[in-house]
């Protein structure tokens, strides 16, 4: 019983991280129609900025500094690159692939591939029935859940959230009302960078990280964004929960080495049944 609870909690933790990464992908795609292959690099940036700053100035100051770095770099790649590819999805794709290869190698050079640890919250929490869960994992679950809730409310209630949803729904109609695609695209990239960087910071505080986490979370991010129905934030959350929990259950009770076989089979099954994803109500038009 307690073992099941622990497994479910670990699944939920993973699901929270996948949601943060997938949300950014789905929002930038919805608004700019760019599939950003370099998105996962913001996970790496968040993780290594936290590790780097926390040894210099302590964890409390490192968190806002790491977020600031992510926001600045998000604005930079958008204003110097992606903004020119709006309306041309092949160019956007090519640029993001180039950026991915470039940053991957830069980060390998800067941080090497030796796994590093971020700051940890010490101690464990006893679950009903005797199993123990590390406090750092509990903190990650709470952080991701809180951030996903805030993001959901902000998408519904704030002007920026409304701008993102309206532009995702109909870019031309939004532009007739003074919402320029370029400006809303910037909102999208900044929101995506922050969400991914927080995911990276969370990952660094529960497990050793290398610059390769970016790509591995990018792939899962794509999976949840696509299962959810590209452009749908609710879909990302549902797909991430499904994936995280299936992953945790199969690795605990069936075979840990086969986890990705189960999860990717699940994706194939969902997409065969619902080619548009779980939540997509309209046909996605690329371009």
């Amino acid at each position: 019983m307690s073992e099941l609870l622990l497994t479910l909690l670990l699944g939920i933790m993973q699901a929270g991280l996948y949601t943060l990464v997938g949300l950014g992908l789905t929002i930038t795609f919805g608004v700019t129609h760019i599939l950003n292959f370099a998105h996962g690099e913001f996970v790496t940036i968040g993780a290594f900025a936290l590790i780097g700053f926390s040894t210099m100035v302590g964890t409390a100051a490192a968190i806002p500094l790491a977020l600031l770095v992510a926001v600045a770099l998000g604005a930079l790649v958008y204003l110097l690159g992606f903004v020119f590819t709006i309306g041309n999805h092949l160019q956007g794709l090519a640029f993001s692939l180039g950026l991915l290869l470039f940053t991957e190698n830069i980060f390998l050079e800067l941080f090497s591939s030796i796994p590093r640890n971020g700051p940890r919250v010490d101690g464990t929490l006893a679950l009903l029935g005797g199993e123990q869960i590390a406090w750092s994992r509990v903190v990650v679950i709470i952080t991701t859940a809180a951030l996903v809730t805030v993001a959901a409310i902000a998408l519904k209630r704030t002007w920026v959230g409304l701008a993102l949803r309206a532009t995702g729904d109909d870019r031309f109609a939004a532009s007739t009302l003074g919402l320029s695609a370029k400006r809303v695209g910037l909102y999208a990239f900044l929101v995506a960078a922050v969400l991914a960087a927080v995911a990276g910071m969370c990952i660094a505080s529960v497990s050793p990280v290398t610059p390769a986490i970016g790509v591995s979370y990018l792939l899962t991010g794509f999976v949840v964004a696509i299962i959810g129905g590209l452009g749908s934030p609710e879909g990302v959350l549902m797909a991430a929960l499904l994936l995280g929990i299936v992953e945790a259950l199969t690795s605990r009770y069936i075979d840990p080495s086969m986890t990705s076989v189960y999860t990717y089979s699940l994706m194939v099954v969902v997409l065969l049944a619902l080619p548009q994803g779980l939540f997509n109500r309209k046909v996605v038009r690329a371009g």
Partner: peptide, 26 residues
């Protein structure tokens, strides 16, 4: 100076009220 596009182009997934709110963005 506001343009109302041909074919209406409301935001289909936003509610009526949210559509109006987008209009007030500027």
């Amino acid at each position: 100076a506001l343009y109302v596009p041909e074919g209406r182009m409301v935001f289909p997934q936003l509610t009526v009220e949210e559509n109006l709110k987008v209009g007030a963005f500027t």
